[in-house]
Write a protein that binds this DNA or RNA. Structure first.
Lengths: 187, 187
DNA sequence: TATTGTTATACTCTATAACTATA
DNA sequence: TATAGTTATAGAGTATAACAATA
């Protein structure tokens, strides 16, 4: 459990009963199960991408020319700036992104995606789409849409409640990459 | 990213567009967002429980008298047996569970919840229930039920696809506690 | 003096392997 | 010889702090 008293899905109560496996009633556990399945597919897709999911994030920003400087990118994605250095080292070594001098500030580097990187990103996106569809496969058309809609409504609220949310921060937190200044000591 | 090319939620494509923030279409990201919100609440609930979410799992098993021996418990929950040792040390020190000699095998220990542990568990369960309800608050009655139902259907399929799934394993994997024999090297 | 990016150090957590005691 | 549990060691990953170049 990385830094915080890391939270989790679990299957809940049944006030005292010995047979403690009421999967149906446990929302958190079900969420975890479904999310994990998505993570697995997405993970497989990004398995050989340097930096994994975070590498994907960076690549996507770079490809959209949203990246800006290294620091800005790190802040936007909620990645530590020292980690960003390693991440970019790997992505650059793989020929997917490049660090270019910022004409306005000689300290800063602007991050851009190479052509190879853009092609790679497009391929990744296609595969991720497929993974999503695969996840929803058990639901038929109308149910699938209903689920999407309800989930998005929940997600909207969740995001409204703490707005400082980038996809990458979600990854980091959910995935156990710690948040500064906590530390449980639970071993 | 702990051991595997750890997967993640991300917001997807928009084939090339610079404004890359199509939250609505990204299932994985939405899932991550919602799940994280649950993790936060659940994490807060278990913040001062030794072992965090895994401690909860162990406590729940012990309280249900399902625990059996230490090894059996570890296997059932998908926890490494060495980790189980530390976990139980902490829980025992906190007076929540006890290791009792197994009458049939003097090597083994049977794990049971103390009275304090049972009370604590009941309180935790109540709070977790509330956290669940809070998560679903944005949906009204029928929508809430619909969401639960759809999610459980997906979860059922997910579980069917890899049956060796305990709640604790889900925690471990989703949360970044690695799975043996992988290692990306992505830094 | 403050800031961008890099490098080095410390800390947390997990897994692997060695060890003790029973079987 | 194999198994339950414990302890010790090493590896992966992150954050913290010190550093160089520029503003």
């Amino acid at each position: 459990m990385s830094t915080r008293g890391a939270p989790s899905p679990r299957r809940p109560p049944a006030p005292a009963g010995p047979d403690h496996h009421a999967l149906d009633t446990d929302l958190g556990f079900a969420l975890g199960l479904v999310f994990r399945r998505y993570l697995r597919s997405a993970g497989a897709v990004m398995a050989d991408l340097p930096g994994g999911p975070r590498g994907y994030q960076v690549l996507a920003e770079a490809a959209g020319n949203n990246a800006g400087t290294q620091l800005a990118l790190a802040q936007r994605l909620g990645i530590d700036r020292t980690v960003m250095t390693y991440l970019l080292d790997d992505l650059e070594r793989a020929g997917l992104v490049a660090r270019r001098p910022d004409p306005a500030d000689r300290r800063a580097r602007r991050i851009v995606a190479t052509e190879v990187g853009q092609v790679r990103l497009a391929a990744l996106d296609r595969e991720l789409r497929r993974a999503e569809e695969h996840l929803l496969a058990p639901l038929d058309g109308p149910d699938r849409e209903a689920f999407r809609e309800l989930l998005c409504r929940l997600a909207g609220h969740a995001q409204a409640l703490d707005p400082a949310t980038s996809a990458c921060q979600v990854v980091a937190e959910v995935t156990g990459s710690g948040c500064p200044g906590e530390g449980t000591g639970s071993r």
